[in-house]
């Protein structure tokens, strides 16, 4: 915008305004709302750099600079919890990102629309199960005392596995339950994207003699690629967040070595005294890192495709 201004002076501005004024009018109200509800409160970030006491408020509390960030990196468990957080997110990403896409593609191939609707409705139900009930259910199923899974293992001659107390099983259980819960609900957006693909392309392909697999590869996948790429880039921003409540219910001191992540550790940190500043500092740091990841993914995407966030 500045460049245009320098080159063309007043008339440039006017032209832009004339051309775009409707667009500006359209986004005026939303922009105001974003500014009010997101930017007005942003002063709270300062809490990460001070020793916040509620009585002194945000601007009266003592400024301590990077103290909490340093404190975090001096913590003996700092490396482990970062590792656990990232690994958990990556495994999650690996499995729970493609699965909804796969499901959507499969559903797309179903010609009987009643069957399709039935499957859609059933697979989307688990999303609504509360996490407390889900974990309760899982503990029952995988119990080493009388759970069905262990009984089947025994039937095949194996020995009982104490699933919830084995650090090695934690990630599998976490990702598995996320998959079970989220696959159907997550496929909805891809179904919507699929609906937007021009049917004539399929017609043309059929005439050209393409088989099912070729149709998928050359029409369907490219058709949902923009949506997929965008969602993937944005997913990069969640590398440091995990489902805190779920982990809290699933983990125990037996599985700390794989299950203890940033959010749970920070939670225990603040359990005795509500140290808001420490939590704020960690939160800020993670946000900044996530932002860098997204930026990186976006840059990469721009290089290899046409799709990017900005």
């Amino acid at each position: 915008m500045d460049r245009k201004k320098k080159k063309e002076g007043n008339s440039g501005w006017k032209r832009i305004w004339m051309r775009d004024r409707e667009l500006y009018a359209m986004c005026l109200v939303p922009v105001i709302m974003v500014v009010v509800f997101r930017y007005f409160p942003i002063y709270g970030i300062v809490m990460a750099f001070e020793r916040y006491t509620p009585s002194k408020g945000f601007f009266g509390s003592e400024f301590v600079g990077l103290k909490y960030f340093i404190q975090f990196f001096r913590d003996p468990f700092c490396f482990r919890i970062i590792k656990n957080t990232v690994l958990l997110s990556l495994y999650s990403l690996l499995w729970t990102f493609p699965a909804p896409i796969l499901l959507a593609l499969l559903l797309n191939e179903v010609r009987c629309s009643r069957y399709k609707k039935l499957v859609q409705t059933v697979t989307y139900l688990p999303h609504f199960i509360s996490v407390v009930i889900l974990i309760g259910l899982m503990k029952e199923l995988f119990s080493s005392v009388d759970g069905i899974v262990n009984r089947m293992i025994a039937a095949f001659g194996g020995s009982a596995v104490n699933f919830f107390s084995e650090p090695g099983w934690f990630r599998t259980l976490y990702v598995g339950s996320s998959l079970w819960q989220g696959m159907g609900y997550g496929s909805i957006i891809y179904l919507a994207a699929l609906a937007g693909i021009d049917m004539e392309q399929y017609e043309a392909a059929r005439i050209d003699g393409a088989n099912r697999l070729q149709k998928i590869l050359y029409i369907t996948l490219p058709g949902i690629m923009p949506t997929t790429v965008i969602l993937l880039i944005m997913r990069m921003g969640s590398l440091f967040s995990n489902d805190f409540q779920k982990i809290l219910l699933m983990y125990s001191t037996a599985t700390y070595s794989t299950a203890d992540v940033l959010s749970t550790y920070t939670y225990r940190y603040g359990l005795e005294n509500s140290n808001y500043s420490y939590a704020a500092a960690i939160g800020l740091m993670l946000s900044a890192i996530s932002f860098v990841f997204v930026w990186g993914a976006n840059w990469f995407s721009k290089k290899v495709s046409e799709n990017s966030l900005w």
Binding site: R51, T53, Q71, D75, P76, F77, T253, A254, Y256, S257, D260, Y265, R268, Y269, G270, E272, N273, N275, Y278
Partner: peptide, 28 residues
Amino acid sequence: TDEEQERKSEIMTPIKTYMEEELMNFIT
């Protein structure tokens, strides 16, 4: 005091984490 609480959190959270994990190893 506030500062003491902070110091307590800083030292004891990792210790507690370590202790609880190790206790599991001892018990089992």
